[in-house]
């Protein structure tokens, strides 16, 4: 039943589409008006605003690249977000990725002080 309905719908749709396409004929006056409209549209494609719009993707990529550089630059990152780095200059990434024991980082300030006190040691 459903299959029959689908077939009938399809047959109707085909016939209707064919008839509608067949009816797309126009007189010469309308054809001239359409040609004029098309000309205006093509002129609009060359307006500065249309051309500027076409440059938006390039501008967006450039802006994204600048933002990426600003965010990912290590020194700036530390400066902009002090929570990421502590006073000793060790950032979270170091703590997570190297093999040093946590005790080393706990005493890091002591080692730094020691190095300053005994530069020739």
């Amino acid at each position: 039943m459903n299959h029959e309905n689908d077939q009938d719908d399809l047959a109707f749709a085909r016939k209707a589409a064919q008839a509608l396409r067949h009816s797309e004929t126009i007189d010469s006056e309308t054809a001239a008006k359409l040609a004029l409209a098309r000309k205006r549209a093509l002129a609009a494609a060359n307006t500065p605003s249309a051309q500027l719009r076409s440059m938006w993707p390039v501008a967006a990529v450039t802006a994204a690249a600048i933002v990426a550089v600003l965010v990912l630059q290590p020194e700036r990152n530390s400066a902009l977000n002090p929570a990421v780095a502590d006073a000793s200059g060790v950032d979270t990434l170091d703590l997570l990725t190297d093999d040093m024991s946590p005790a080393f980082y706990r005493d890091l300030e002591f080692y730094q002080w020691l190095a300053q006190e005994r530069p020739n040691a």
């Binding site: 509608l20 009816s23 797309e24 126009i26 309308t30 008006k33 359409l34 409209a37 098309r38 205006r40 549209a41 093509l42 609009a44 494609a45 307006t47 605003s49 249309a50 719009r53």
Partner: peptide, 28 residues
Amino acid sequence: LRMAQIVTQDRDEALDIVQDAMVQLARK
């Protein structure tokens, strides 16, 4: 034009619709 004319039943109104649509497509 034919699509617009079926609804508007007026060729000039349909022409206006098609012209506006063509300009908008070209511009954007």
